[in-house]
Protein backbone atom coordinates (compact mmCIF):
# COMPACT_ATOMS: atom_id res chain seq x y z
CA UNK A 1 0.00 0.00 0.00
CA UNK A 2 1.35 3.43 -0.80
CA UNK A 3 2.02 5.81 2.02
CA UNK A 4 -0.63 8.13 0.72
CA UNK A 5 -3.29 5.46 0.81
CA UNK A 6 -2.17 4.33 4.20
CA UNK A 7 -2.52 7.86 5.47
CA UNK A 8 -5.95 8.22 3.96
CA UNK A 9 -7.09 4.89 5.31
CA UNK A 10 -6.02 5.86 8.76
CA UNK A 11 -7.94 9.07 8.64
CA UNK A 12 -10.88 7.73 6.66
CA UNK A 13 -12.23 5.77 9.58
CA UNK A 14 -11.84 8.66 11.90
CA UNK A 15 -13.57 11.36 10.00
CA UNK A 16 -16.98 10.18 8.86
CA UNK A 17 -19.18 12.03 11.34
CA UNK A 18 -17.14 15.17 11.05
CA UNK A 19 -17.23 15.28 7.28
CA UNK A 20 -20.90 14.56 7.01
CA UNK A 21 -21.59 17.48 9.26
CA UNK A 22 -19.26 19.77 7.40
CA UNK A 23 -20.68 18.75 4.06
CA UNK A 24 -24.19 19.23 5.31
CA UNK A 25 -23.07 22.62 6.50
CA UNK A 26 -21.57 23.56 3.16
CA UNK A 27 -24.62 22.28 1.36
CA UNK A 28 -27.11 24.08 3.54
CA UNK A 29 -26.60 27.11 1.33
CA UNK A 30 -26.22 30.16 3.51
CA UNK A 31 -23.14 31.75 5.04
CA UNK A 32 -24.53 33.28 8.18
CA UNK A 33 -23.74 33.62 11.85
CA UNK A 34 -25.08 30.15 12.52
CA UNK A 35 -22.79 28.73 9.87
CA UNK A 36 -19.72 30.09 11.64
CA UNK A 37 -20.91 28.92 15.01
CA UNK A 38 -21.39 25.43 13.67
CA UNK A 39 -17.96 25.61 12.08
CA UNK A 40 -16.46 26.56 15.44
CA UNK A 41 -18.13 23.62 17.08
CA UNK A 42 -16.79 21.24 14.45
CA UNK A 43 -13.23 22.43 14.91
CA UNK A 44 -13.50 22.31 18.69
CA UNK A 45 -14.91 18.79 18.55
CA UNK A 46 -11.82 17.84 16.55
CA UNK A 47 -9.65 19.00 19.47
CA UNK A 48 -8.32 21.99 17.55
CA UNK A 49 -8.75 24.04 20.73
CA UNK A 50 -10.89 27.04 21.57
CA UNK A 51 -8.28 29.77 21.04
CA UNK A 52 -7.07 28.52 17.70
CA UNK A 53 -10.60 27.81 16.54
CA UNK A 54 -11.83 31.29 17.36
CA UNK A 55 -8.80 32.74 15.61
CA UNK A 56 -9.23 30.64 12.47
CA UNK A 57 -12.97 31.17 12.18
CA UNK A 58 -12.68 34.87 12.99
CA UNK A 59 -10.13 35.42 10.25
CA UNK A 60 -12.16 33.33 7.86
CA UNK A 61 -15.21 35.41 8.56
CA UNK A 62 -13.39 38.65 7.81
CA UNK A 63 -11.73 37.40 4.67
CA UNK A 64 -14.98 36.02 3.34
CA UNK A 65 -16.45 39.47 3.83
CA UNK A 66 -13.48 41.28 2.25
CA UNK A 67 -13.33 38.97 -0.72
CA UNK A 68 -17.11 39.01 -1.01
CA UNK A 69 -17.18 35.24 -1.34
CA UNK A 70 -20.58 33.74 -2.00
CA UNK A 71 -19.75 30.19 -3.06
CA UNK A 72 -19.46 27.75 -0.20
CA UNK A 73 -16.86 25.78 -2.12
CA UNK A 74 -14.64 28.88 -2.06
CA UNK A 75 -15.10 29.30 1.66
CA UNK A 76 -14.14 25.70 2.16
CA UNK A 77 -10.94 26.15 0.14
CA UNK A 78 -10.08 29.25 2.12
CA UNK A 79 -10.55 27.43 5.41
CA UNK A 80 -8.49 24.53 4.14
CA UNK A 81 -5.62 26.80 3.16
CA UNK A 82 -5.68 28.45 6.55
CA UNK A 83 -5.21 25.14 8.27
CA UNK A 84 -2.55 23.93 5.83
CA UNK A 85 -0.64 27.16 6.39
CA UNK A 86 -0.69 26.56 10.11
CA UNK A 87 0.74 23.09 9.64
CA UNK A 88 3.84 24.09 7.67
CA UNK A 89 6.29 21.27 7.44
CA UNK A 90 10.01 21.03 7.85
CA UNK A 91 12.09 18.40 6.10
CA UNK A 92 13.76 15.73 8.18
CA UNK A 93 17.46 16.33 8.42
CA UNK A 94 18.98 12.87 8.15
CA UNK A 95 21.55 14.26 5.76
CA UNK A 96 23.02 16.47 8.47
CA UNK A 97 24.93 13.60 10.05
CA UNK A 98 26.30 10.93 7.77
CA UNK A 99 26.88 8.54 10.65
CA UNK A 100 25.15 8.00 13.96
CA UNK A 101 22.13 10.14 13.28
CA UNK A 102 20.48 10.06 16.70
CA UNK A 103 16.69 10.23 17.03
CA UNK A 104 15.18 10.39 20.52
CA UNK A 105 11.56 9.69 21.33
CA UNK A 106 9.95 11.33 24.34
CA UNK A 107 6.40 11.70 25.62
CA UNK A 108 3.85 11.02 28.34
CA UNK A 109 2.94 7.50 29.45
CA UNK A 110 1.05 5.40 26.94
CA UNK A 111 1.45 7.72 23.96
CA UNK A 112 3.19 5.04 21.90
CA UNK A 113 6.92 5.76 22.13
CA UNK A 114 8.15 2.17 22.12
CA UNK A 115 5.95 1.15 19.19
CA UNK A 116 6.97 4.27 17.27
CA UNK A 117 10.65 3.50 17.92
CA UNK A 118 10.11 0.07 16.38
CA UNK A 119 8.23 1.51 13.41
CA UNK A 120 10.98 4.06 12.74
CA UNK A 121 13.61 1.35 13.00
CA UNK A 122 11.80 -0.70 10.38
CA UNK A 123 11.36 2.34 8.13
CA UNK A 124 15.08 3.11 8.07
CA UNK A 125 16.02 -0.55 7.81
CA UNK A 126 13.86 -0.77 4.66
CA UNK A 127 15.85 2.13 3.27
CA UNK A 128 18.96 0.02 3.67
CA UNK A 129 20.26 1.88 6.71
CA UNK A 130 22.12 0.27 9.58
CA UNK A 131 19.91 0.90 12.59
CA UNK A 132 20.50 0.66 16.34
CA UNK A 133 17.67 0.71 18.88
CA UNK A 134 18.31 1.91 22.43
CA UNK A 135 15.88 0.40 24.97
CA UNK A 136 15.75 3.55 27.06
CA UNK A 137 12.56 2.79 28.98
CA UNK A 138 14.16 1.15 31.96
CA UNK A 139 11.25 2.02 34.26
CA UNK A 140 8.08 0.36 32.97
CA UNK A 141 7.95 -3.36 33.61
CA UNK A 142 8.78 -5.39 30.49
CA UNK A 143 9.27 -2.32 28.27
CA UNK A 144 12.74 -3.58 27.36
CA UNK A 145 11.32 -6.97 26.34
CA UNK A 146 8.67 -5.22 24.28
CA UNK A 147 11.26 -3.33 22.24
CA UNK A 148 13.47 -6.42 22.05
CA UNK A 149 10.70 -8.38 20.36
CA UNK A 150 10.11 -5.53 17.94
CA UNK A 151 13.84 -5.27 17.19
CA UNK A 152 13.96 -8.95 16.39
CA UNK A 153 10.97 -8.62 14.06
CA UNK A 154 12.51 -5.63 12.30
CA UNK A 155 15.89 -7.29 12.16
CA UNK A 156 17.81 -4.45 13.79
CA UNK A 157 20.26 -4.38 16.66
CA UNK A 158 19.30 -3.32 20.14
CA UNK A 159 21.23 -2.15 23.18
CA UNK A 160 19.64 -2.71 26.56
CA UNK A 161 20.35 -2.85 30.23
CA UNK A 162 18.51 -4.29 33.15
CA UNK A 163 15.15 -2.85 34.03
CA UNK A 164 15.61 -0.13 36.63
CA UNK A 165 19.07 0.96 35.53
CA UNK A 166 19.98 4.57 34.91
CA UNK A 167 18.87 5.60 31.41
CA UNK A 168 21.68 8.16 31.06
CA UNK A 169 24.26 5.45 31.69
CA UNK A 170 22.53 3.23 29.16
CA UNK A 171 22.63 5.99 26.55
CA UNK A 172 26.29 6.61 27.31
CA UNK A 173 27.12 2.95 26.70
CA UNK A 174 24.87 2.71 23.66
CA UNK A 175 26.41 5.74 21.96
CA UNK A 176 29.93 4.58 22.73
CA UNK A 177 29.06 1.33 21.03
CA UNK A 178 27.57 3.27 18.14
CA UNK A 179 30.71 5.38 17.82
CA UNK A 180 32.89 2.30 17.78
CA UNK A 181 30.87 0.33 15.29
CA UNK A 182 29.23 3.00 13.16
CA UNK A 183 25.50 2.99 12.61
CA UNK A 184 23.53 5.16 10.22
CA UNK A 185 20.61 5.71 12.54
CA UNK A 186 20.36 5.40 16.33
CA UNK A 187 16.78 5.42 17.66
CA UNK A 188 16.41 5.99 21.38
CA UNK A 189 13.31 5.08 23.36
CA UNK A 190 12.68 6.74 26.74
CA UNK A 191 10.35 5.99 29.65
CA UNK A 192 6.97 7.70 29.56
CA UNK A 193 6.72 10.59 32.00
CA UNK A 194 4.16 13.20 32.86
CA UNK A 195 5.39 16.60 31.80
CA UNK A 196 4.67 18.19 35.19
CA UNK A 197 6.91 15.73 37.02
CA UNK A 198 9.93 17.90 37.64
CA UNK A 199 12.37 15.14 38.59
CA UNK A 200 11.56 13.01 35.59
CA UNK A 201 11.87 15.96 33.22
CA UNK A 202 15.24 16.64 34.81
CA UNK A 203 16.25 13.05 34.13
CA UNK A 204 15.32 13.57 30.50
CA UNK A 205 17.47 16.66 30.28
CA UNK A 206 20.35 14.68 31.70
CA UNK A 207 19.95 12.02 29.00
CA UNK A 208 19.94 14.82 26.45
CA UNK A 209 23.21 16.22 27.79
CA UNK A 210 24.84 12.79 27.86
CA UNK A 211 23.78 12.14 24.27
CA UNK A 212 25.17 15.52 23.19
CA UNK A 213 28.53 14.79 24.77
CA UNK A 214 28.81 11.31 23.30
CA UNK A 215 28.02 12.17 19.70
CA UNK A 216 28.74 15.70 18.46
CA UNK A 217 25.57 17.43 17.31
CA UNK A 218 23.32 14.71 18.73
CA UNK A 219 20.45 14.21 19.27
CA UNK A 220 19.65 15.29 15.73
CA UNK A 221 15.97 14.73 16.16
CA UNK A 222 13.92 14.83 19.36
CA UNK A 223 10.41 13.73 18.59
CA UNK A 224 7.52 14.17 21.00
CA UNK A 225 5.09 11.29 20.65
CA UNK A 226 1.52 12.53 21.03
CA UNK A 227 -1.56 10.32 21.18
CA UNK A 228 -4.13 11.69 18.69
CA UNK A 229 -6.86 11.27 21.29
CA UNK A 230 -5.15 13.80 23.57
CA UNK A 231 -7.04 17.00 24.18
CA UNK A 232 -5.84 20.47 25.11
CA UNK A 233 -3.31 19.03 27.54
CA UNK A 234 -1.06 18.23 24.58
CA UNK A 235 -0.11 21.92 24.44
CA UNK A 236 1.13 21.79 28.01
CA UNK A 237 2.99 18.59 27.17
CA UNK A 238 4.70 20.15 24.17
CA UNK A 239 5.63 23.22 26.20
CA UNK A 240 7.15 21.34 29.12
CA UNK A 241 9.04 18.79 27.06
CA UNK A 242 10.33 21.57 24.86
CA UNK A 243 11.71 23.29 27.94
CA UNK A 244 13.49 20.15 29.09
CA UNK A 245 15.06 19.48 25.71
CA UNK A 246 14.59 21.18 22.33
CA UNK A 247 11.94 19.26 20.41
CA UNK A 248 12.35 19.06 16.64
CA UNK A 249 9.05 17.45 15.79
CA UNK A 250 5.98 15.48 16.72
CA UNK A 251 4.83 11.96 15.96
CA UNK A 252 1.05 11.85 16.05
CA UNK A 253 -0.01 8.30 16.95
CA UNK A 254 -3.26 6.33 16.98
CA UNK A 255 -4.81 8.23 14.09
CA UNK A 256 -6.58 5.04 13.08
CA UNK A 257 -9.19 5.66 15.75
CA UNK A 258 -11.95 8.26 15.65
CA UNK A 259 -9.83 11.04 17.09
CA UNK A 260 -8.78 13.63 14.56
CA UNK A 261 -5.71 14.95 16.29
CA UNK A 262 -6.66 18.58 15.70
CA UNK A 263 -4.54 19.59 18.67
CA UNK A 264 -1.43 19.55 16.45
CA UNK A 265 -2.79 22.63 14.70
CA UNK A 266 -2.64 24.49 18.01
CA UNK A 267 0.76 23.10 18.92
CA UNK A 268 2.22 24.16 15.58
CA UNK A 269 0.50 27.53 15.85
CA UNK A 270 1.49 28.33 19.42
CA UNK A 271 4.84 26.60 19.88
CA UNK A 272 5.94 26.02 16.32
CA UNK A 273 6.74 22.34 16.52
CA UNK A 274 5.81 20.54 13.30
CA UNK A 275 4.34 17.07 12.98
CA UNK A 276 6.77 14.78 11.18
CA UNK A 277 5.18 11.36 11.28
CA UNK A 278 1.79 9.86 11.91
CA UNK A 279 0.98 6.44 13.32
CA UNK A 280 -1.97 4.72 11.72
CA UNK A 281 -2.12 1.26 13.25
CA UNK A 282 -0.55 -1.44 15.36
CA UNK A 283 1.51 -3.03 12.61
CA UNK A 284 5.13 -2.14 12.09
CA UNK A 285 4.54 -0.54 8.70
CA UNK A 286 1.77 1.71 10.03
CA UNK A 287 3.88 4.84 10.06
CA UNK A 288 3.80 7.59 7.44
CA UNK A 289 5.46 10.95 6.95
CA UNK A 290 3.13 13.78 7.78
CA UNK A 291 1.61 15.70 4.90
CA UNK A 292 -0.14 18.91 6.00
CA UNK A 293 -2.32 19.18 2.97
CA UNK A 294 -3.54 15.61 3.19
CA UNK A 295 -4.08 16.03 6.89
CA UNK A 296 -6.08 19.23 6.51
CA UNK A 297 -8.12 17.83 3.64
CA UNK A 298 -8.87 14.68 5.55
CA UNK A 299 -9.75 16.78 8.57
CA UNK A 300 -12.27 18.86 6.65
CA UNK A 301 -13.26 16.43 3.89
Amino acid sequence: MSLLNQFKNGLARSKTGFINRLDALFNSGEINEEFYEELEEILVSGDVGVDTTIEIVGQLQEEVKDLKLRELEQVKELLLNKIIKKLSFEELKETAAPKNHVIMLVGVNGSGKTTTAAKLARLYKEQGKKVLLVAGDTFRAAAVEQLEIWAERAGVEIIKQQSGSDPSALYFDALNAANARGFDIVIGDTAGRLHNNYNLMDELNKIYRVVGRSVPGAPHEILLVVDATTGQNAIAQANSFNQALPLTGIVLTKLDGTARGGIVVSIQDKIGIPVKYIGTGEKMEDLAPFDPELFARALLG
Partner: peptide
Protein backbone atom coordinates in the same frame (compact mmCIF):
# COMPACT_ATOMS: atom_id res chain seq x y z
CA UNK B 1 -9.78 6.31 30.38
CA UNK B 2 -6.71 8.53 30.14
CA UNK B 3 -7.60 11.82 31.85
CA UNK B 4 -5.77 13.72 29.13
CA UNK B 5 -8.12 12.49 26.43
CA UNK B 6 -9.86 15.18 24.41
CA UNK B 7 -13.19 15.32 22.66
CA UNK B 8 -12.84 11.73 21.46
CA UNK B 9 -13.24 10.28 24.97
CA UNK B 10 -17.00 10.05 24.61
CA UNK B 11 -16.79 8.24 21.25
CA UNK B 12 -14.61 5.52 22.68
Amino acid sequence: VDAMTGQDAVNA
